[in-house]
Nucleic acid binder design. Structure first.
Length: 272
DNA sequence: CTGAGCTCCTGGGAGC
DNA sequence: TGCTCCCAGGAGCTCA
């Protein structure tokens, strides 16, 4: 499932067909994801796409009539196809474009989101976007900001990195990878992390997310970009999914442990 | 407010 | 080949 790089790759994929396009019609095939799919979507006609945007792991399609807010959840993906192609299992929403293409929103586990905001409603004021922390790849995020937000917290640093009120876009895979790259144990609590270590963490978050985007994201199980191609960053994962294999730095065995309810991978020798 | 744990849902892979 | 069990990239909710 997508973390920030996978969402960014998806956005770039759909922008190839959506920029300058008009969405003629939207077919809603399954009414309920995490929230019900906005039923108004099925009644709309000829939405001219004005701007495409990513905020955290959300995709916003701005049109002349309002905004479509998408979230891919754990298993969602968007697929660009010719209009002759039939919908597949779990294609819950279909966007029919005026240029011969269509986009399927497929989400087997239905943890995703597809919500309509007419022009008089601001999606940024919605509960989904309002409380989000800074974007990691912008100047709005740095080590000092991270330090301020976590220095009073007793929660483990791994869980804090995944808290999207602190910084958005870091999910379970990249939390393990970032901590490994920074040499910091996922078990330490926020109030034990120094400013210098926060600077290191912020640097590694930016570096790893940007590298992953450039390689098409990480495909573990079922992620693929809008063109159906998998991401190749999985080859660059140092620890995630490599439990009981040798650490790429020191050769000692990589540990896995459930932290914050999810499996976490780290090297006890390299991370302190 | 904080932290810990549970929950939504389906499918793929491992193990028998 | 087929069954059962466990696990999965998110994030909101409840409870102490």
């Amino acid at each position: 499932m997508p973390e920030l790089p996978e969402v960014e790759v998806t956005l770039r994929g759909i922008s190839k067909v959506l920029t300058q396009a008009t969405i003629q019609q939207i077919i809603v095939s399954y009414p309920t994801l995490r929230e019900p799919i906005s039923t108004e979507l099925a009644t709309l006609k000829n939405l001219r796409v004005v701007k495409l945007e990513r905020r955290a792991k959300y995709i916003l399609i701005h049109t002349d009539q309002g905004v479509i807010l998408l979230h891919l959840g754990m298993s969602g993906h968007l697929r660009v196809a010719e209009q002759t192609e039939e919908a597949r299992k779990h294609d819950h929403v279909t966007f029919i474009l005026d240029n011969g293409f269509q986009i399927f929103f497929n989400d087997a586990r239905r943890f995703g989101l597809c919500v309509w905001f007419p022009l008089d409603q601001d999606p940024y004021e919605s509960s989904w976007l309002k409380k989000l922390g800074p974007e990691p790849l912008t100047d709005a995020f740095n080590g000092e900001i991270l330090f301020k937000k976590i220095t009073t917290r007793k929660t483990s640093i791994k869980v804090l990195l995944m808290d999207n009120t602190i910084v958005v876009g870091v999910g379970n895979i990249y939390a393990s990878e970032v901590l490994f790259a920074a040499g910091i144990s996922p078990l330490r609590s926020g109030n034990e992390i120094s400013l210098a270590e926060c600077n290191k963490l912020a640097t590694e978050i930016k570096r790893i997310l940007a590298e992953s985007i450039s390689q098409g994201g990480t495909t573990i199980r079922d992620f693929s970009g809008a063109d159906g191609k998998p991401g190749y960053f999985v080859q660059n994962l140092s620890v995630y999914g490599h439990g009981n294999e040798p650490c790429p730095h020191c050769g000692s065995m990589i540990k896995s442990k459930v932290i914050g309810g999810r499996n976490t991978y780290f090297c006890e020798h390299c991370q302190h």
